[in-house]
Nucleic acid binder design. Structure first.
Length: 421
RNA sequence: GCGGACGUAGCUCAGCUGGUAGAGCGCCAGGUUGUGGUCUUGGAUGUCGCGGGUUCGAGCCCCGUCGUUCGCCCCA
């Protein structure tokens, strides 16, 4: 830059933006272990990975959210670009995926089974397990109205949690919202019920009753909970189709062997949701207990301007899953190649490159005598040290030391890669 | 957006009723001229988050601010 723009007053001390965090060392290993495990398991279910832009036109996310939620302008990172367009850093993955489905013409080739991962952005008050830039993994089946798709999506989530070793800390809570007709009937019933208890409801819930009656059902207020306990559940209001759908889903899940706890208090506020709603919940993360949640959103693609396309999927927070991992993934161990003196550095460089070509993790410290380099080998967690001295090189061999047992033996240079593989 | 708690070396934390900072781990160097991890000896580290105020004097008291955290709200 030749001309300096007007700058903000220089910060006395740089620090990360509120609600963001760096991933380094163990935290990075936890993070990527979660993502790689999810990616691998999702692939076994036949999901293909997609990647879409990190920002979209604001309308992509605002559509369908309506005016009832705070979300739209209060909690999105929206900005106007130099061309005057309103853009938004994605707060979730699903909307972008649906947009991509429509704009790539894929509504002609359904179903699509999508795995997704990446950073998301929400302007919220940070807490443990809740950040302004956070990461999600997502699994979606686009274009399938069958309960088999719901079962598969849930089973995939369950398999990932099992593969991560956190399944025992988590329960699957399941509910149905029915189709539109059923949901409307239930909504009326809830309004009728809560209206007769209006005086006893918390102030928050009285507001919810007007804006979003279903949300009263998952209020955390102790007084509300007592009233909610006797509130109607949706089941009597499900029409034949919705009841059959829910029955079929439970049947599939039982057959797959996913343990289910039915929880009629799981609700969703927006109109494009229908039928299945579920959450895998842990008690180990305080208030941020949902570790993976999702359901069926048969109306979203249509609101995005596409054809009616029934979909089901879930999203999970990578940060929360990382915190649940009982054991941090081990740092990778490699081979340390150590010249005994500067004169052997060239030969050591040849060997470290040969080992890498053979697919082995191998390093040579940039500086230091034998002792320093041994210390460094130990610190970086190397499992083996290859020590190259003048006399050994003259004979075409190296000292190979097992750093966990301390055993050391001579191996011919030409055999190194094969013996250490 | 609302309410509470916290913020001291790289990390985890101690610091009495206000008298200009400590421990453990880690780091660096020696005990070893071609061998790490254990042991041992020595060493360096801090604008006590930041800004202001009270006071002869503030890590400690007061106000503000930034950040973290617990809960609420929200949860697409």
């Amino acid at each position: 830059m030749t001309e300096s723009q007007p700058r903000k007053p220089s910060v006395t001390k740089v620090q990360p933006v509120r609600g963001t965090h760096d991933l380094i060392g163990e935290s990075a290993r936890r993070h990527f272990h979660v993502i790689e495990t999810a990616r691998r398991v999702a692939a076994t279910y036949g999901f293909d990975e997609w990647s879409t832009p990190i920002f979209e036109e604001t309308a992509v996310f605002a559509r369908g959210l309506g005016d009832t939620s705070d979300v739209v302008m209060k909690e999105m990172y929206s900005f106007t670009d130099r061309g005057g367009e309103s853009l938004t850093l994605r707060p979730e993955a699903t909307a972008g995926i649906c947009r991509a489905l429509v704009t790539n013409g894929l509504t002609q080739s359904l179903p699509q089974k999508v795995f997704y991962t990446g950073p998301m952005f929400r302007y919220e008050r940070p807490q443990k397990g809740r950040y302004r830039q956070f990461h999600q993994i997502d699994v979606e089946v686009l274009g399938s109205p069958e309960p088999l798709a719901d079962a598969e999506v849930i089973a995939c989530g369950w398999s990932i949690l099992q593969a991560l070793g956190v399944a025992q800390d988590v329960v699957l809570e399941l509910n149905t919202l029915g189709d539109r007709e059923s949901r409307m009937a239930y909504r009326e019933a809830l309004i009728a019920y809560f209206s007769t208890h209006k005086e006893a409801l918390s102030e928050d819930s009285r507001l919810r009753l007007e804006r979003n009656p279903l949300r009263v059902v998952d209020s955390k207020d102790p007084g509300d909970k007592a009233i909610v306990a006797d509130a109607p559940t949706i089941h009597p209001y499900l029409n034949e189709h919705s009841a059959a759908f829910y029955g079929k889903l439970r049947e599939h899940l039982a057959r797959i062997g996913v343990p289910v706890v039915e929880n009629p208090r799981i609700v969703r506020g927006l109109d494009y949701y229908s039928h299945t709603a579920f959450e895998f919940v842990t008690s180990q993360l305080g208030a941020q207990g949902t570790v993976l949640g999702g359901g069926r959103y048969d109306g979203l693609v249509e609101e995005m301007g596409g054809p009616h396309t029934p979909c089901v999927g879930w999203a999970a927070g990578v940060e929360r899953l990382s915190m649940l991992l009982a054991h941090p993934p081990a740092a990778p161990a490699g081979i340390a190649v150590i010249p005994a003196a500067e004169a052997q550095e060239g030969a050591a460089l040849d060997i470290v490159q040969a080992l890498r070509t053979a697919g082995l993790r191998a390093e040579m410290a940039y500086r230091g005598n034998l002792k320093r380099r041994m210390e460094r080998a130990n610190k970086t967690g190397a499992h083996t040290a290859i020590i190259l001295g003048e006399s050994e090189l003259a004979r075409g061999v190296a000292q190979v030391k097992n750093l966990s047992t301390g055993d050391q033996q001579e191996i011919a240079l030409t055999d190194l890669a094969a013996k250490l593989a």
